[in-house]
Design a protein around this nucleic acid. Structure first.
Lengths: 171, 171
DNA sequence: GATCCTTGCTGCGAAATCCGCAAGTTCCTG
DNA sequence: CAGGAACTTGCGGATTTCGCAGCAAGGATC
């Protein structure tokens, strides 16, 4: 009952509650704004406002807030291959002891694009982006396996990237 | 000798050659433009031009071409959790027969964000983004495992996303 | 080597957008 | 009821975007 439509005047951008990790919930209007910017990160505020039923100024304020809160970022994304990174791999890591130090160390590596803790036969999955085979080998064998707490790793070298989307909420 | 500096007038944006898959190579200036837009996808062309040593119009043309060619896209990216997708998983898939049909089928699913063919103990890795446990269960057990050619799957449910970057080339 | 053609860059107005601000309204909360 | 938050409308001025004409460099052709 707190939002009878996308253009409802009483919609609260933060939707009162907060989720467990402290990140704010988003109402339908902010979702719609994000979807607009997922289609085109440079779309003008007025056009977004027309699409979601808000004034240009309001959209501007919302976008700024979403960016400040870190809920969303507007960036250029590329196919790594095109930009000169020819070897990528997903690395499954098994850890003994606490996961956090290992995850932190992985996060600190510039070659590591993606770090996620998982349930399953790996404790951590990390995506590595490298310039060539030597570089990849170096990162996996010399740096990741050398981290204290790392019991074992398994690598999945990328052969072909088939899909890469950034369209959460746009379906 | 075809590029003695970032601001060189004779730098060829396509760098003459093409890579094996037909995607054009990028010269240093285009790389620099991409880096600027990776920091802020809405940065004005004039500011980028100042940073990379090009006129505003030239930057505009280059960016447009990069977008048209599909080398880069400017989009809003979010943490899926914040946008209401509470369950994510990486799914390793083993296939009997040819990989392509399976990869295509995965690519066609809206819940699948990421599909990559790999070397290693999985043939394909797919990242799945779902709203809740039921949704995730449905996608993995009913839809992915049901695909013809899928021999087995193994799931890694995400517990915590530690890092997510889009900064290829920005190091 | 002269010519043609393509590509990329510059420079420049005109149009559109962004940005900050102020006043007024509505709704919710303490 | 007072206070706060969010939105709207309206407004200029600064900035940015956009389209176009002109020019220079490089390659291809004859």
């Amino acid at each position: 009952m707190h939002s009878e439509g996308v253009a409802s005047r009483s919609a609260d951008p933060r939707d009162s509650r907060e989720s467990r990790n402290g990140t704010p919930h988003l109402d339908a209007v902010s979702l719609a704004i994000i979807e607009q910017l997922q289609e085109d990160g440079r779309r003008p505020y007025a056009a977004i406002g027309k699409a979601v039923g808000l004034s240009e100024a309001a959209v501007r304020q919302r976008v700024q807030k979403l960016l400040d809160q870190g809920v969303m970022q507007i960036v250029a994304v590329t196919d790594p291959l095109t930009v000169g990174f020819r070897r990528q791999a997903m690395v499954g890591v098994n850890v003994e002891g606490s996961l956090d130090p290992v995850a932190e160390a992985l996060t600190a590596m510039s070659e590591v694009e993606y770090v996620v803790m998982t349930a399953g036969s790996f404790d951590i999955l990390a995506e590595v982006v490298c310039e060539d085979d030597d570089h990849l080998l170096d990162v996996i064998n010399k740096r990741i396996r050398a981290l204290p707490g790392v019991r074992s790793t398994e690598s999945f070298v990328y052969l072909k990237l088939k899909k890469q989307t950034y369209m959460w909420g746009t379906r």
